[in-house]
Design a binder for these strands. Structure first.
Lengths: 120, 120
DNA sequence: CCGGATCCTTAACGATACTG
DNA sequence: CAGTATCGTTAAGGATCCGG
């Protein structure tokens, strides 16, 4: 209802929907280095994840138009993923997000240290 | 396990964790206008949501250190929420996210239009 | 090598009712 | 006004097995 209408109207709601996937952001980040193959992608993920999960996330991102899937017709199969045009534009978001993420990590460390010292 | 360790190490994983909440981004956006009361916040949300849900999201954000809860001791009760220091730093993310969100919306419109014309 | 199909578990979300 | 407690629902994620 209202949700369906707002998707495509409010930039925050729209962006959030895309970033909802647990791995979407990290996948996009890995793709900023250029085209990458499925297995390589899986290896570089920060956590172990089954290919089922990765496959699903990739398909979602592809359906959303953020990434492009390139299938080489050969045996053994080879598939590469790369950022689409609109996906490329996401780089800026990733870079500021990285900066903030590190600031937030520093903040968390501060909190932890404060708690430790208080507990002494 | 690995997850617990990576939270606080990788800026993307960390940031994603914070943004996982369905409303977190929009709440932070609404707070960029300054302190705001609970009910006002609920009214401004893009979708109808129960105060139960909003309350939970606010508590999560507060626990994560992104927002600050200010309780005025009076009858009737008055509570305001505002960005914390690290929350303030999130403004930059929001602004680039807004830009990208609008670009993505434009892209989606393009796709829709193309599909319509092809169907003619 | 790169998946799809299926089933299961979990956690987010939402609805309702109640409280200081 | 601003919540909490509880419960039901649903969607995302993960495990396993099968296929081109």
């Amino acid at each position: 209802m209202a949700k369906k209408e707002l998707f495509g109207l409010c930039p925050y709601v729209t962006a959030q929907k895309v970033l909802t996937g647990k791995w979407s952001m990290y996948i996009l980040y890995l793709l900023t280095d250029g085209p990458i193959r499925f297995n390589e992608l899986q290896r570089r993920m920060p956590e172990e994840m089954t290919h089922t999960t990765l496959s699903r996330q990739l398909k979602t991102l592809e359906d959303e138009g953020l990434i492009v899937r390139i299938e080489y017709q050969q045996i053994p199969p080879k598939v590469e993923y790369q950022l689409s045009e609109i996906g490329e534009k996401f780089r800026k978001v990733l870079s500021v997000l990285e900066v903030w993420g590190n600031e937030y990590i520093a903040y968390l460390d501060d909190v932890k240290r404060t708690l430790r010292e208080a507990g002494t």
